[in-house]
Nucleic acid binder design. Structure first.
Lengths: 343, 343
DNA sequence: CTGTTAGCGCATTCAA
DNA sequence: TTGAATGCGCTAACAG
């Protein structure tokens, strides 16, 4: 409500003096005056006009968070517990650093650029963007950017990013399933054709077969539809073709939970008749019954490191690493069992 | 990057002309010139400086979302699927209305006021705030505010709000449990001493007993700790005192799911040995096994109506209603069974 | 149809 | 130790 000018008037001094007090330039203001002004500032609940600050500094105190939204689907991924968890963590970090957080769901590169430009963003965190878009954004945005769980088209180009050892996650889980005797293992993901979290996990899946001296499956990759009904139809298909696979490896707990739910309704016994593995280790995998055997990742850590990296860049410093790759570990729960070898 | 001034220079016209084109004042600019300027605008990817706009209009295009955070807990409630769902809905509505969304978790009234003032917020949506804080905020904030799931201390004062028929939800579920033969029903919530979502549901709980001609239970209200371990201890206590209650009615699916998980681990059969009911009807209640019998609410609708109400206020119009109370309905699933009467 | 100008609130430089 | 002046980008009233 009140401006520096008004505060100055109340205190009977010039705006500059008030500004000096606000910015802690104690050597420029007498102690008595300083106290008086501080008191008025509090009474008036002075809050700087961020618009004026933006104008003055050509930079805002806003960190933008971009959440990928499937084009035309209209619904964002924020309901996935993994996503909401990382957003919660980022909010905390951003707030504690004295910044503000703007959240925006989009799948349009130009919208991201416009967003960053119009708000003169201090920084940008981009979550789970497909490579085509993230590469393009990285090149043309003026603010520092940290990518989380993004992959890029050009293998050489390195952007500041925090991700997971997705390949290893895919590898270890597949090895775990192989160790349990499974040989016909389906891999189910959103997309695996271009560089992405899912394609890396799928690479791991194939490498595990190779490392075990087994032929790499050619007909076991399934792309999950964005449409829930179509996904349910796919799960149903597995139920009807019990010989095709003995284990399903989902690239996200969200879908693993959905599948368990659907298949259990059909009377299928999990894991006895079909083993199911997930990826992420969130709320769902712990609460689902049977509890989901999954690949664990530390989401809070991921969010914290991304924020730390971003604020290093905001300070115009160079982060020690361009790319942080967080470890994974297998969490064996109940949804995977030994393959019953019928002989 | 580029400003109106720079665009004007490129086009060889004055800034006003460019501004007129931007604002669609076609009657003030010749068609040929308009096209030329529009082309340059696109090429340069002109994005207005929102700081300058804020300064000029004394108002931003930002809608602030306040999420209540337990003091000292540090963790927000964003991980509750109910909360992330409504945030996702609000994001969509705000974006489609041409606004931007800032998210902030806090439990401090002054922080909310400072936040609204410093950003000259176009509007504010306040989620699930305790009455003491929401009443205070409502009085002193300059921007239009819509409260979602908030209750107020003064019974007379009405603010713009969207909520649920919480009392009825508590009533209907309790009646449902009574119909199933349960008499010893615990009510478990975050807080029920001051006006809140939980206290209203608790009122419904008590009214159902009264309506059934039964004595209102005096020792069956349990306040859930913010600390997970303490909550688990409470669930354990119920397992150890099977005679005390035959049904637990939780004020949120989140906790109901947590309890089912915990109690199932102890070998308790749900619902055979203990019936459990929830409130919200989200992801968890559908995926949990057994599926949770719960009170359904339409979260997407809630978010949409809150946004609609807010933008009505932003346009300085008067919403048709000050308080929207959305209906509930019981969703009977699997976690509640008939009480086995031992005779 | 087109251009000039003042002022929104703030930080900062320079002058007193 | 304090104050006056400037300019950041934009809008809108006004002048041409």
């Amino acid at each position: 409500m009140s401006t520096i000018k008004q505060i100055a008037e109340l205190a009977g001094v010039s705006p500059t003096t008030v500004a000096n007090v606000i910015h802690g330039k104690t050597e420029k203001v007498s102690e008595a005056l300083r106290k008086k002004i501080v008191k008025i500032l509090k009474e008036e609940k002075y809050a700087p006009n961020q618009g004026a600050l933006m104008l003055k500094r050509s930079r805002s105190h806003i960190v933008g968070i971009i959440l990928f939204m499937e084009p035309r689907s209209g619904s964002s991924s924020i309901e996935d517990p993994f996503v909401s968890r990382i957003i919660g963590t980022l909010e905390t970090e951003i707030r504690e650093a004295g910044y503000f957080m703007m959240l925006r769901c989009t799948s349009d590169k130009d919208e991201v650029l416009h967003f960053a430009a119009t708000w003169k963003l201090a920084g940008l965190v981009i979550l789970c963007m497909p490579s085509e878009i993230s590469s393009a954004v990285a090149k043309s945005v003026a603010s520092p950017v940290v990518f989380v769980d993004c992959y890029f088209e050009e293998p050489g180009s390195k952007y500041y990013s925090v991700k997971l050892d997705d390949e290893k996650g895919g590898f270890e889980m597949t090895r775990y399933l192989l160790d349990k005797g499974h040989r016909d293992i389906a891999f189910l993901a959103n997309a695996a054709d271009f560089p992405s979290v899912d394609s890396a996990r799928y690479d791991g899946y194939r490498n595990a077969f190779k490392a075990a001296g087994l032929a790499i499956p050619r007909d076991k990759l399934f792309i999950l539809s964005k449409n829930e009904k179509e996904r349910l139809r796919l799960y149903l298909w597995f139920a009807k073709h019990p010989g095709f696979c003995t284990a399903l490896f989902f690239s996200a707990d969200y879908y693993a939970a959905e599948a368990i739910d659907c298949l259990a309704q059909l009377g299928l016994k999990i894991p006895d008749q079909l083993s199911i593995a997930g990826f992420d280790d969130n709320l769902l995998s712990r609460l689902q019954n049977p509890k989901i055997t999954t690949v664990h990742q530390d989401v809070v850590q991921k969010g914290r490191l991304a924020a730390k990296m971003l604020f290093t860049l905001v300070k115009k410093e160079i982060p020690p690493q361009q790319e942080l790759v967080l470890p994974i570990r297998i969490v064996a729960r109940e949804s995977v069992s030994n393959r019953i070898v019928s002989s």
